[in-house]
Write a protein that binds this DNA or RNA. Structure first.
Lengths: 342, 342
DNA sequence: TTGTAGGCGTTATCAT
DNA sequence: ATGATAACGCCTACAA
């Protein structure tokens, strides 16, 4: 059995309150006594029982990160940022893989979250009324990461998707591309797809490049779906010179399709992604993409959450994380006329 | 404030013991009463306070997964398996990113693990006496994943690395390769590098293929290190026809180097990896590799751990997970004489 | 400055 | 079958 506060008290010949104070308010204890107690604590390897403190204070020192899937490097990276802040605050992070699944979400809420967690970071799907209602019932601070609160203005941490997408598209245009296809995420997933689509469209229009639904194709934001989407896009736009995909995973899937068609990237077709996953620099040529500082998103979300935890009635301000175009090897500058252009 | 067992009792006009029994031993409660209580529980949205139960039973329903880095897809995948079993058992998983760092490990142990966790899955480094000692002090079931207990025979879940590595090498030999370079993980990381090296060497010898330290190069098991290691290997073995790397990350780094040298994979050089990371199928050509069923490793480790949790004095048996050669596009069969061989 | 005592919510033992 | 009660370990108001 672990030593309790009583054991320490007896051993040090003081009352349990003194021991408790040594932990929670050291200055209120006389120097000698404090040192005596500290020594016994050390000797016995005493640490307060978190259940007992939790029972009294209603705090668990645990936060929850709800994400669709850790296997997705995007969320792994985010989690890593969250975990970093949590460790520094002496908090634990519990993972909930929601798999974009309401039932599973409920299961978590019912069996875990309700059971005392001090805060929640939600990075899964679209927030619907269903989620909002459950969050409210939890009665703990909630921060959204890479998604937004929509009507319910929950605090969130994310990139300015419209602007980022605008920048990506403009980059392609500035490199001499006009026939730019867009592989969007699924239209039912409003965030971030509405925004990324809007940025794309706006950039095209602002630069007087014709754009229509003919330039767009929709797919789940995965590698396999990207591959398949590229085949559809290619059928619609056989003359495209560039493809902009709303996620790196899709972009890399698209590249696979192009490769199989004997189309070289970037010689025949340029490709631009979004996310800057770790693997985007591993492929050859490296993927030119929009970097979200995902780690930073996680960290910021954590920091925001702790603000809320430490000061329960404070209004949390949403945060926008800067983005950046990462130039690698998948976009060809068509303005530099080369021998083998298309 | 959340409703307590007292609120339910009052509302249902029974004693708290009855309410408690409805939860923990429903059959011992009369049918009508049970139903009445159940209804009130529903109405009030009552759920037992886990701190109170924890305080009594000394169980947290939480396990810890200690891994080097979630950003590494290998561990993300493993975590995903662990999490799956945990959810089914109504347990939570807390992540500890150790970053292969003893201090950080200690921090976790001190602030979290000691604070009541029912079990631990450790998938970080080599187990040294330092770790073993800390595990013992924790006094909870510990299962190793993808590492081994060495002298201390802690239960572990892993692939048979010697055999898997033997199979990989043999596959290359059977495809007509003789000049096979090996990119090993760092020699200070005994597990799994000793085993993979042994499998490689044994396969070469068994097939009468000359092998020596000239064929081997050591590096950290990352993409960047693989790239750099390939340059060293190429300097030592300019005539190699195949490279076998002890991890996919290294293999893909090596491919990048080869690509930059104008060497095509697999036309000029064949490449074989180890791990079957998700991204290995995303690159073009897809990486031929040894699949560890990493998800399964995580799941098995979880199951083993729960055996230990549910029956504290049971001896846990280590588990070996099957491996498999995944043939994709990076190994050329030199026995099929083609036009452009090397 | 230090000690005493009550209460946090649950479960299990014991009595009815 | 049901109810009363002690105990889990900690913290803090209050008393000394």
């Amino acid at each position: 059995m672990n030593p309790t506060i009583h054991d320490v008290a007896k051993q040090a010949n003081v009352s349990i309150s003194t021991v408790s104070r040594v932990f929670n308010n050291p200055d209120s204890v006389g120097k000698e006594m404090r040192e005596r107690v500290l020594q016994v604590i050390e000797e016995l390897g005493y640490a307060p029982n978190p259940f007992a403190s939790g029972l009294r204070d209603n705090r668990s020192m645990v936060i929850v990160a709800m994400i669709p899937d850790i296997r997705n490097s995007y969320y792994a990276e985010m989690l890593s940022g969250i975990e970093e802040v949590a460790l520094s605050k002496r908090y634990n992070v519990i993972i909930c893989n929601t798999i974009q699944n309401e039932e599973r979400f409920l299961e978590y809420v019912k069996y875990f979250v309700k059971k005392k967690v001090d805060g929640l970071i939600f990075a899964s799907t679209e927030i619907t009324e269903f989620y909002k209602k459950n969050f409210d019932a939890l009665n703990i601070p909630v921060v959204l990461a890479s998604t937004e609160g929509r009507a319910w203005d929950l605090p969130s941490v994310r990139v300015d998707d419209v602007q980022a997408s605008y920048d990506a598209t403009t980059f392609l245009i500035n490199n001499g591309h006009q026939e730019i296809g867009f592989i969007s995420g699924p239209s039912h997933l409003l965030v971030p797809n509405v925004q990324r689509y809007e940025g794309y469209r706006k950039a095209m229009q602002d630069h007087q490049v014709p754009v229509s639904e003919q330039h767009v194709v929709y797919a789940e934001m995965t590698f396999d779906a990207g591959y398949e989407a590229m085949s559809r896009l290619y059928a619609k736009m056989p003359h495209l010179t560039a493809v902009y995909a709303a996620s790196d995973a899709m972009a890399i899937g698209a590249m696979k399709f192009l490769h199989e068609q004997g189309l070289e990237v970037p010689r025949h077709v340029s490709v631009m992604g979004f996310d800057n996953l770790e693997l985007s620099r591993m492929i050859s040529p490296g993927l030119t993409t929009v970097a979200q500082n995902i780690y930073e998103i996680g960290k910021s979300a954590g920091e925001l959450l702790f603000q809320g935890i430490e000061n329960r009635d404070q209004d949390l301000q949403s945060v926008t994380i800067a983005h950046e175009i990462i130039v690698r090897g998948t976009v060809r500058n068509r303005r530099l006329k080369s021998d083998s252009e298309r």
